[in-house]
């Protein structure tokens, strides 16, 4: 529709694109190709020589029960984190939309957790829920709940999911608040006149119109849960107890930098890369079709 702008200069567009391309090449494609190459090498125990082994590393990784456990842990962790973070944020945003007095203060306070570094967020939660020193853990025990994330894998998972989603709620909240504000008030009024009560209005008008925001946050939260939660897991559980919270990213780190199995680690990161590319592609291809951009 809009007329195409044609630059008379043939070289200028490439020059303008060059810095961006250079950064992408140096900081993304180069390391990625290194990982790909690395994933097909096997190093001897002393790191003196390496051998090209084609897809042996992949075969071994995929056959490893520990790795499959890690896939399961990641799935549970990511789905739970994204779900908790988004549902809570939406709830808070809907509430915040109704607040009239002290609206600005309320919103500002809601945003603070986002400024907390992941590792520190993890430590905060650990201080609260550590079975021996945690204030809230004491309360839980007093209530008769056997709470011990240091021994119980399920408890540990709950703790890291709580910490990870707590941090992400602020971010989601901001976007949901903006999304809610973008919905014209007359639409809500029209729906009210059309005989829809508040709950019905939310599910038939507000929620569908928030779909673009929700979809965007789904992508962001998935990527967050996959990659950006390393610090939290590292600080809170270190992947334990007994690999109960060892996500794929954490295992890449553990195998590569702690156990120094570089080939396996590289193979895992390549698989991880493929998974995230596939997830994003699926989300864009199928979910976006059901999203309405007003």
């Amino acid at each position: 529709m809009s007329p195409r702008v044609v630059f008379p200069n043939k070289i200028l567009p490439y020059l303008l694109l060059a810095p961006q391309l250079a950064i992408t090449l140096v900081f993304f494609y180069w390391p990625a190709s290194q990982a790909l190459y690395q994933s097909m090498l096997r190093e001897d125990p002393f790191g003196l020589k390496s051998q090209f082994v084609w897809f042996d590393n992949f075969a071994r990784v995929l056959a490893d029960p520990n790795y499959l456990n890690s896939v399961r842990v990641t799935a549970v962790f990511s789905i739970a984190t994204a779900a908790v973070a988004m549902v809570t944020a939406l709830l808070l945003a809907v509430m915040a939309d109704k607040v009239i007095r002290g609206r600005g203060l309320y919103r500002t306070l809601m945003i603070w957790p986002y400024a907390v570094a992941p590792a520190i967020a993890g430590m905060l939660w650990l201080f609260l829920f550590n079975p021996s020193i945690g204030t809230l853990a004491y309360g839980l025990r007093w209530l008769g709940i056997a709470w011990n994330p240091l021994l119980d894998g399920g408890d540990a998972m709950v703790l890291v999911v709580a910490a990870a989603s707590w941090k992400q709620i602020s971010y989601n909240f901001l976007f949901f608040v903006a999304g809610l504000q973008a919905i014209p008030k007359t639409l809500i009024e029209a729906a009210a006149i059309d005989g829809a009560g508040p709950t019905k209005r939310f599910w038939t008008i507000v929620f569908p119109l928030l779909a673009p925001t929700t979809f965007f946050l789904l992508v962001v939260n998935t990527v967050y849960a996959f990659f950006d939660t390393f610090g939290i897991i590292h600080a809170v559980t270190g992947g334990g107890p007994g690999k109960a919270t060892e996500t794929l990213v954490y295992k890449v780190y553990n195998d590569g930098f702690v156990n120094l199995i570089l080939g396996d680690s590289a193979a895992q990161s390549v698989i991880l890369m493929v998974i995230v590319i596939a997830l994003t592609a699926i989300q864009f291809r199928y979910v976006e079709k059901k999203v309405h951009y007003g």
């Binding site: 029209a190 006149i193 779909a211």
Partner: peptide
């Protein structure tokens, strides 16, 4: 029933 100035049709 009300007809709004901006019509307020449900866009989705």
């Amino acid at each position: 029933a009300m007809v709004f100035q901006n019509y307020a049709l449900y866009p989705h």
